Simulated scan of single mutants.
Amino acid sequence: MPRPIRTLAAAAAALALVSACNSASTTGSSGTPDAAAGAYYRGVTDDSIKVGGIVSMTSAGGYSKKDTDLGAKARYLRANAEGGVNGRKIDYLGAEDDGQDPARNMAAARKLVQQDKVFAVAPMSSVTFSGADFLEQEKVPTFGWGTLPSFCGPRYLYGFNGCLVPSPGGTLNQTWPEGIAQLLGGARGKSVAIIANDSDAGKFGIRTFRQGFASAGFTVSYAKASVPATAVPSDWSAYVKDVLAGSDGKAPDAVVSVMQTPNNIGLFTALKRAGYKGLLSDPTDYDPGLLTQDATRQALDGVHVLIQFEPFESTSPAMAQFKADIKAASGGRDVPLSMHMLTGYMSAEAV
């Protein structure tokens, strides 16, 4: 029997704490003086470094990335247990919930800097990043999942996994197109349909992956950010019809969804009910907990998920350490692991 969820691993990410902080912000006398640079660092004292996060704990569509906060907390707790960073303990304030709303994302960024006076923001995980320009202007090191152009280029904003959606002319990451080409026995003569939410992240994703799959040799038969971002459709029939019709009336060899879990469950279920037998893939549903429910297990059966870190099945010392850290942060309880835990954990790595 095939595995319910298969992974296309982008990289086996190293899980090792960087021993020194990145570029700091100069903010007058609110921090600790750096004798060499003659500067003061916001959020840094002789014995602590203040850090906060911005995470979509809630959303209008019911999707939650709350596990991102636990992942970051787990990494900070271990760092502190090992003596902190250069002798300073990390004072993690937890993550602000932006609700996947641009106004709340900006408000969260301003609160963390102006009220909480953090040195860094890590993790930042949302489909919107309206606070990016403000954090860059304030020279606040910010680390998150590089799924938005804001993580591509600015001096103080970093994707723990690099830049996934570069501006036009930037270097594309071809892991996903090349992985799917390998699964299909090559891209020549094969077509792919790409669908996303009507959001900033969805539009950037469509632009990037349309180019990436075309560059890999695929015919892109459909590529639209057409699904509402604020609510999961109750009827997927129109989307399924458009995706399967493509540009020539022929069903694509692969359907790639650049959406979040509730949308993927609905779309994949509807495609399977319509008789679609091609390859299905997305970058967000690597979550063993989804397989505990019959409906989600059936929807994700056979789906290939792109990930940017080691899979939980890995027996490497680094993955064993991650699992131990999560258990410690959960009060000794065994909790279901999720991709969002790892994105928070990896974001905290960089501080």
Rank of each mutant, 00 (worst) to 15 (best):
Y222D: 02
D285P: 00
D285I: 00
N264Q: 13
A231C: 09
D235E: 13
V256E: 06
L271Q: 02
Q260Y: 14
P288C: 05
N264F: 07
K250L: 10
K272S: 04
D282T: 02
N263F: 12
L279A: 02
A270V: 03
P252V: 06
L244S: 12
P228R: 11
A251I: 01
Y286I: 01
S221V: 08
V220N: 03
D253E: 10
M259V: 06
I265T: 15
Y239R: 00
G246F: 12
V240N: 01
D248K: 14
D248F: 13
K241W: 12
A270E: 02
R273E: 15
K241R: 15
N264P: 09
S234P: 00
K250W: 05
P228T: 13
T230F: 08
F268G: 00
S237Y: 04
V240S: 02
V240R: 08
V255M: 07
S234R: 14
T269H: 08
A238T: 15
P252E: 06
Y239I: 01
W236H: 07
N263M: 11
D248A: 15
W236T: 04
V227Y: 08
S247D: 13
Y276I: 03
N263G: 07
A270G: 07
T269F: 03
P262C: 05
D248W: 11
A270S: 13
V220G: 07
Y239K: 08
A229N: 15
Q260G: 10
L280E: 03
A274V: 08
Y239H: 12
P262V: 08
D253L: 00
K224Q: 15
N264R: 09
L244D: 12
S247C: 05
A223M: 12
L267W: 00
G246N: 12
A245C: 10
G217T: 03
R273I: 07
P228D: 07
V255D: 01
S234Q: 14
V258A: 08
D287Q: 13
W236M: 10
P233N: 04
V255H: 02
I265M: 06
L267P: 03
P283N: 02
T230S: 14
F268M: 05
V232I: 12
D242L: 09
A245S: 15
A251F: 07
G217V: 11
P262W: 11
V258K: 03
Y239N: 09
D248C: 02
G278A: 01
K277Q: 12
S226G: 02
L267C: 09
S226C: 01
F218M: 05
P228Y: 09
A223V: 08
Y222G: 03
F268A: 05
L279R: 07
A216Y: 05
M259K: 10
S257C: 06
K224N: 08
L271K: 10
T269V: 12
K277E: 10
G249F: 14
R273W: 08
G246C: 12
D285H: 03
A225M: 13
K277N: 07
